[in-house]
Amino acid sequence: MSARKKLAEKFSWTRKHLLGLEELSREEILHILNTADTFTDVSTRSIKKVPALRGRVVVNLFFEDSTRTRTSFSLAASRLSADVIEFSAKVSSISKGETLVDTARNIEAMGVDVIVIRHSAPGAPHYLARCVDVPIVNAGDGAHEHPTQALLDMFTIRQIKGRIDGLKVAIVGDIAHSRVARSNIWGLTKLGAKVIVVGPTTLVPSSMKAMGVEISHNLDEVLGEIDVINMLRVQRERITSNVFPSVEEYTRLFGLNAERMARAKKDLLVMHPGPINRGIELTSEVADGANSAILKQVTNGLAVRMAVLFLVNQAHQGSN
């Protein structure tokens, strides 16, 4: 019997919320990835649906713009036969705590079963989890965490590399403001990977060391030793700020292009959480090249989100 199967047999999932990877154990993370494994084939069937969440309602409560994460969650819920409600609410201020709870309580009163929330305030999902009874899934909270993105990144690494333990993973870009980076760091280090965060000094604070990562301000220095590179998206709103170098300078120092790929390991896995700024953090040649797993990440996101929705709902139903 494989080690993966053995773990699956003795482990029991009990969390009704997915708020972040910081609070998850290694076993819990692996259980999500293993459950996601079994969902990958649903999308290839003639009927791309299973009835596991039939009669349940999943609400996408998005206070920030999102296309792919929202679509991915919607599709994941549909594939589990849940009904999906889209709730968009743009807020001008992040300090509307009361409005957030009122909104969530109203939605809860309609009898929903899972709330998927994206909010610009770090900790908003955690706050909601204390205020309402239904399972909360964090789809991104400010610069804090984006757990499902990190889970799908790890799922993709494991799928292609066959393991995570012992790999060297570089995360490149605006680490300080990135929830994707933060969730990836928590998850990857728990699964035994060595994480190197790379970027200009203004965007990669030395305080990140406390999270158990290595810090580098020189991509070329680490390029030859890494197995996976996760290129974060350059946030356009930061380009104009004084912490960010010019686009040209950023691309010259931290952009991934064919010339840099030639100096990297042959099987370097290239990832990006999307949407890509072609020509800035990645050239098209690299984004569409043989080492790129960018579209696989999107496909895997669906399986990972199905697994998360399935697990939190099951833990919630079981606890009632």
Binding site: F11, T14, T35, T38, A52, L80, F310, A315
Partner: peptide, 22 residues
């Protein structure tokens, strides 16, 4: 065939039901 996702007693099983691949 793994039938976990098609069970009619998922609600009663708490965290116990484990999905395996079909």
């Amino acid at each position: 065939l793994d039938i976990t996702l098609y069970r009619d007693d998922l609600d009663q099983k708490g965290g116990q039901a484990r999905v395996q691949a079909t």
